Amino acid sequence: MRESDLIAGLDQQQLDNFVDYVLSEDLGSGDVTSRVSVPASARFSAVLAARQPIVVAGLQLAAAFFRKLNPEVAIEFLVQDGDNVAAGQPLLRIAGSAQLMLAAERSALNTLQHLTGIATVTRSYVEAIAGTDCVLLDTRKTIPGLRAIEKYAAKVGGARNHRMRLDDGILIKDNHIAAAGSIVEAVKAAKAANTGLEVQVEVDGIEQIEPALTAGADRLLCDNMSPAKLKGAVALVGGRVPIEASGGVRLDTIREIASTGVDFVSVGRITQSAPAADIGLDYALSS
């Protein structure tokens, strides 16, 4: 399936399942408050707007919640995912049944705020390493069940997606090495399996690099190394394989890390710890 056919990283079946699950979680047997206090004939128009500077992500997904409860809802998109938006700028306009719009509001906002928060934080990391030749990667540190949409938001923010699932690549880490007996044994076994996948090896010391390369590692992940050690690792590798830096990377440290000559920096916090964006939905009665 083409990427252009997806909505926030989801195909149609995944989108339907996600929207149904989230709405069922929020609605239960129905929005009692709106049903008993708002006339069934009442109609609302509304504007969804940013309340802080943001990078938008998940707008089409948010709209899907309103469409699910009211297929006749009118929606006008005013920006697109990936746009930098100033505080106060409208994102979309909607009009339709007041009861149904109120019922869908929280599910739509929760999703949009979360994904936009990820895209906004990600963009700040990307901008922090602008001008270097280093690429920002996301990780598998995602909320269970939300990986596809969170990685979509990270990509919107400018990161490159890395390993959606465990079958996307081989990454030999310290626990694999301990179980195999050594880096050499772990890498040799992985290469002998002939999976066709790249074999990446995590190293946390300079002394592990040469054994990993000799055994056939295709890529290195330098974990929790200081910038000085990363420079040493880059010099030792000498361009033989790509190098990724990871571990405890913050916005205030990523540029120094990226400037050591590593090819990639992976940051778990862009999906794991991004704060929700402040986005609001303001209603007015329609005639």
Rank of each mutant, 00 (worst) to 15 (best):
S226K: 06
A98C: 14
R140G: 09
K151L: 08
A235G: 02
D133Q: 14
D204P: 01
R163P: 00
I7P: 02
D83S: 13
E198S: 03
L92Q: 03
L91H: 05
R269K: 03
L78A: 09
R163K: 13
A189I: 05
C134T: 14
A228H: 15
G96Y: 00
S107W: 01
V126L: 09
G268Y: 13
E25Y: 05
R2E: 15
A63T: 06
P90E: 03
T139F: 11
I118K: 03
T132K: 08
E256K: 08
A50P: 00
D263W: 06
N84S: 15
L171C: 03
N224Y: 09
G181D: 09
Q200N: 07
P275E: 08
L112C: 07
D5K: 04
Q60N: 12
L48M: 15
V38H: 01
A193L: 10
P227E: 06
G205Y: 12
E3T: 08
S124K: 12
G157L: 07
S34L: 02
R240D: 02
N17L: 05
G30D: 06
N161Q: 11
S266P: 10
G28C: 15
S266G: 08
R93E: 13
I172F: 07
F44C: 03
L166N: 04
A189Y: 09
A50E: 01
L6N: 01
V184F: 04
S4A: 14
R269A: 13
A284I: 13
K155R: 15
A159V: 03
A98Q: 01
S34T: 12
I54Q: 00
F77L: 05
R219Q: 15
D278V: 11
R35M: 10
A235N: 14
V22P: 00
I118A: 11
D26P: 06
N175I: 10
N84E: 11
L10H: 08
D83V: 06
G28R: 08
G280E: 13
V187E: 13
T195K: 10
L109P: 09
G196R: 13
V265P: 04
A179H: 10
K229L: 08
A276V: 04
D263Q: 12
A108D: 10
I183A: 09
